[in-house]
């Protein structure tokens, strides 16, 4: 079932819950991995994903299909995650701890991280990037998303995204070389 069919089903009387369950089923994995790569912890990713769907459920009656359903959901998830990361950064600033260091430690101790030493080093290097650059890098590098789609989600021009990805990948390459 594509987005249009899902939304048509959602608008049928009494079928909104069933249609929304199908939407959750269709997009939960992709959204989860997007969030997980940014927050590292499974518990945080789970909370943020559930919040994303709750917000989507509340806003779906006003969804005018000006963008694709997946793009819209991706935008909600990204905003939720960015807000979460900002809050965490402020909290760690107040407690005089380095949040990116905390995330690095999460990679080390996470039982749900199954990568080898090089993958570990790569993910640690990505953590050194600023949050927005990290999102751009992840979307392009891991999800292989088109710049046009990224532009729609992040509200940034394609040119700016290309430049941001270029800088990010150079930084990651340099960090990776120093880490290994």
């Amino acid at each position: 079932m594509d987005d249009k069919e899902l939304l048509a089903l959602y608008r049928e009387n009494g079928k909104e819950h069933y249609a929304f369950n199908l939407i959750v089923k269709a997009y939960s994995e992709r959204l989860y991995w997007h969030i997980r790569k940014l927050v590292e912890s499974h518990d945080d990713a789970n909370d943020l994903l559930q919040n994303t769907f709750i917000k989507a459920w509340a806003a779906l009656p006003e969804f005018r299909e000006e963008s694709r359903l997946f793009t819209w959901l991706y935008r909600i998830a990204t905003n939720e995650t960015l807000t979460f990361l900002k809050r965490k950064k402020i909290r760690s600033f107040l407690s005089l701890t380095d949040y990116s260091k905390q995330l690095e430690n999460k990679i080390e101790s996470d039982v749900y991280f199954d990568g080898d030493a090089t993958q570990k080093a790569l993910h640690k290097a990505i953590l050194k990037l600023p949050n927005k650059q990290r999102i751009v890098f992840n979307m392009r590098y891991f999800d292989e998303m088109k710049y046009e789609e990224m532009s729609e989600i992040l509200g940034t021009s394609v040119g700016a995204l290309k430049a941001s990805y270029h800088h990010a990948s150079q930084k990651v390459q340099n960090s990776l070389e120093s880490l290994l």
């Binding site: 991995w33 090089t118 993958q119 790569l122 590098y141 891991f142 390459q173 290994l180």
Partner: peptide
């Protein structure tokens, strides 16, 4: 250590 290695793009999370 090149980031373009295909295996680095694989998802290491579970």
């Amino acid at each position: 250590f090149n980031i373009d290695q295909p295996h680095l793009r694989e998802n290491p999370y579970k």
